[in-house]
Amino acid sequence: MTLRNKILVLVAALAVLAGVATASVLHAAGREDRKNRTQADGPPVTAGKVSLTPDATRKIVFRNMAWGPHRDELATVPAADPAGPRTASGVKCLRFHAAAGTGICLQAERGAMQDSYRAVVLDARLKERAHYSLPGIPTRARVSPSGHWVAWTVFVGGDSYAGTNFSTRTAVLDTRTGRLTSSLEDFKAYLDGKEHHAADTNFWGVTFAADDQHFYATMATGGHTYLVRGDLAARTVTSLHANVECPSLSPDGTRVVYKKRVPGLPADAPWRLYALDLATMHEIALAEPRSVDDQAVWQDDHTVAYSLAGDYGSDLYTVPADGTGKPRHLLTAGLAPAYLG
């Protein structure tokens, strides 16, 4: 190659690099502009004190998804005014739940080469009581009504419940003694009345009963999912009903709401919300026509709350648990709510 050609190639390369740099700067500026504009148009959020203690004013504590310095922080609003100004705590969680002054916060720890994750048990002032390393990406978290038990689920293979190529690990912790069961796979399982052993068995989506002994969860095996009832003392799980994922037990303990795969729906949005009467095993479809990939939370004995994709990542909605009515928007830019009080 002649000197002239070398110079032409160098000039051309520098022009390309300059163009890429300019495009990157413009893209970043546009993204920052969109971020600032979204933040300005989003829910108002200010720093302040957040407590998990139930009091006379019922409140919602949740992961704030609004852009700005308080994104991903636990925030609170009065349950009577969910669209009102938010108070942010400074504590960041990917998944969260709370009851009776106890919280469970699943967090990311950013590393130079790779992120890691941990489960943090919080007291009523959001101070750390204990923490545990997680073997995968956080996805579900629950606290028992008494605050004596917490559970969490992580993905340890794959990254979505929508497909079939994933593996989960679900742990339960007694907050009074610190005894940790790192995987529900250590419990003895019964499927259709027979003891069940299979390498492909997975559990996720724990929801606790008020008696501090029983819980419900999803068990997956052989390409199918089941609602199981667990016994913490006996360390057993027993199947009750097929095609149930991410159950949530009603405050009165009589029903579970869950997401169910419905034939004919798209592979990446296969679920509808259903409610199951535990006494009769009769299920009904709720009046939410969209696919819900969430573990619903009971607002009271009649209504459930859940997340759907929104402009900030996630918005919260409610729908009656008896199949009547229609979905209602609860709040913008929120995830993982807990009702306290």
Score class of each variant (00 low, 15 high):
Lys59Pro: 04
Ala162Arg: 11
Asp252Gly: 04
His27Pro: 00
Glu185Asn: 11
Val9Arg: 09
Leu184Glu: 01
Ala108Gly: 10
Asn243Ser: 01
Gly136Lys: 04
Met1Leu: 11
Thr238Trp: 08
Leu240Tyr: 00
Pro85Gly: 09
Gly68Pro: 10
Ala29Pro: 02
Gln114Leu: 14
Gly84Thr: 00
Trp271Tyr: 15
Arg235Gly: 02
Asn243Thr: 03
Gly30Tyr: 07
Thr177Glu: 07
Ala18Phe: 05
Lys259Asp: 11
Ala130Gln: 14
Ser144Gly: 02
Thr280Phe: 08
Leu340His: 01
Thr236Tyr: 11
Leu331Lys: 00
Ser182Leu: 00
Gly264Tyr: 04
Glu288Trp: 14
Asp315His: 03
Arg229Val: 06
Asp294Tyr: 09
His329Cys: 00
His224Pro: 00
Lys35Gly: 13
Thr332Ser: 08
Ala28His: 15
Arg129Gln: 14
Gly136Val: 10
Ala141Ile: 09
Ala333Trp: 01
Met65Gln: 15
Gly325His: 06
Ala18Gly: 10
Thr181Asn: 15
Thr181Pro: 08
Ala267Tyr: 15
Ala285Arg: 14
Pro135Phe: 07
Trp149Gly: 02
Thr318Gly: 03
Pro247Met: 05
Asp315Arg: 00
Tyr312Ala: 10
Tyr306His: 01
Thr53Val: 13
Phe62Pro: 01
His27Leu: 10
Gln39His: 14
Pro270Ser: 14
Gly193Ala: 10
Glu195Trp: 08
Lys188Val: 09
Ser133Met: 07
Pro327Trp: 08
Gly42Ile: 03
Asp186Thr: 13
Gln299Lys: 10
Gly223Pro: 12
Ala217Ser: 09
Thr46Glu: 15
Leu227Ile: 02
Gly334Lys: 03
Asp294Lys: 01
Ala80Tyr: 05
Ile7Gln: 14
Ser160Leu: 02
Ala336Met: 11
Ala242Arg: 15
Thr164Asn: 10
Ser307Gln: 07
Asp212Arg: 11
Thr22Cys: 03
Cys105Ile: 02
His97Val: 01
Val77Phe: 14
Glu195Lys: 14
Pro266Ser: 03
Glu73His: 15
Asp33Glu: 12
Leu227Asp: 09
Asp301Trp: 04
Leu74Pro: 08
Tyr117Leu: 01
Phe96Leu: 05
Ala15Val: 02
Asp55Thr: 10
Ser248Asp: 07
Pro266Met: 01
Ser160Ile: 02
Thr87Arg: 15
Thr53Leu: 10
Pro135Cys: 06
Val156Asp: 11
Leu8Phe: 07
Val91Leu: 13
Gly341Thr: 04
Gly193Met: 09
Thr324Arg: 06
Thr332Tyr: 07
Val256Gly: 05
Lys127Tyr: 11
His148Phe: 03
Ser167Gln: 11
Ala23Pro: 00
Thr170Asn: 07
Pro337His: 02
Leu286Ala: 08
Ala217Ile: 03
Gly341Pro: 05
Ala338Leu: 06
Ala210His: 15
His70Gly: 08
Gly310Asp: 05
Gly230Gln: 09
Met65Val: 06
Ile104Gln: 08
Leu122Val: 12
Leu249Gly: 01
Pro82Leu: 06
Asp322Met: 12
